[in-house]
Amino acid sequence: MMDSPLLRYVGLVVLVILCAVFVSPLLWMLSTSLKPQEEIKTSGFAALPDNPSRTLQYAYENYYAGRDKFVDDRGIERTGYEGVLTSDNVHFILYLRNTLIVAVFSVAGVVFASAICAYGFAKVAWPGRDPVFAVVLATMMIPFPAVMIPTYFIFKFLGWIGTLAPLWVPACFGTAFNIFLLRQFFMQIPGDLSEAARIDGLNHWGIFWRIVLPLSRPALAVVALFHTMYVWNDYIGPLIYLNHQDTFTLALGLQFYQAQHGGTPWNLLMAACTLITAPLLILFVMSQRTFIEGITTTGMKG
């Protein structure tokens, strides 16, 4: 059926339309970040500022330098503002650093710990393995608000409230979803490989480290990418556990552009959003092939 040129053409058009629908918010975000504040108010979508030749200047102001207040051609005083990367109120670079710290430690921890747990569930036979795995899976059903207060108590007891530790240390014990994901992948690795390795004198750690992990690169990449996205966008954890702007992450810091009673500087908010979104997009594009390979081989697809 799909060999028909007409159907392929129609399919292509549908895909382009769907793609445009998904991309349009990103384009609006980028476009808004390239405009001065007074041009945000517009009915309809304008990709570039009224004076396109000033696009770079506005981008420089919004992303970096900010601008002083000025009186425009109509005699109206326009407010000044600070650029995203140099603002004294919203410390973007500091938030980025905090987010990176959480992301690096958290991703490293979750990948390693989840892989070890998954190996135990997939390749090691021990009494009660399946019921324990069911319990691990069941933890996915518990909503965060249900454990919010108890975990807060624990972190308070440990003296971690107000630090980044609650955001990355728990990941070092693995997460149920990632353990499940990796277990499914590990189970597809032929048992003969493990047997051969065992005959060659490798113990479980050797098999895990030298055989299973190298073969599981796509699945590990999926776990890393999923968890990076989770950490990057996590709002509720930082909101509850962090108590000072010095430790805030990007997702939390972004809220500072939104005034309670209006006056949100949308051009700056969108510039900040663009900066926050860009690394994830690049990461996804770069790891796209591995990512899709991982998805398809872990049984995650439809």
Partner: peptide
């Protein structure tokens, strides 16, 4: 320690 909900110009 004073927690306040104001951001942007209100917070400043």
């Amino acid at each position: 320690t004073y927690w306040e909900k104001w951001t942007d110009f209100e917070g400043t």
